[in-house]
Amino acid sequence: MTKSELIEKVAERFPEYKKRDVERAVNVIFDSMKQALINDHRIEIRGLGTFKVKERDARNGRNPKSGEGVEIPDRKIPFFKAGRALKLKINVD
């Protein structure tokens, strides 16, 4: 499923809204989450899981193709951890 398919499904559940408004709402949800991560905040969605940003120190890496040494600067990486309920849901039927 893609975001546009998700928007379609949401629109089906809310026939009282214009498709355009549903699309805006879905986009804002992900923008809001993106903004939270930019602000270094943790996101907790009950029943789904948590997102957080971890920091990685700079290190010396290597271009795997050429073998050339490259410096990899310190950076932030977003992580998601599935919630317990969801993990159980996908493993028990």
Binding site: A25, D31, A36, I43, I45, R46
Partner: peptide, 25 residues
């Protein structure tokens, strides 16, 4: 990069709902 675990704020659905509410209106 002095952000520590203890000071980290948590965003929940409430914040997201707020953003959606403002956008739609």
């Amino acid at each position: 990069m002095s952000n520590t675990q203890s000071t980290q704020q948590t965003v929940t659905k409430a914040q997201i709902v707020d953003d959606v509410y403002r956008e739609l209106n």
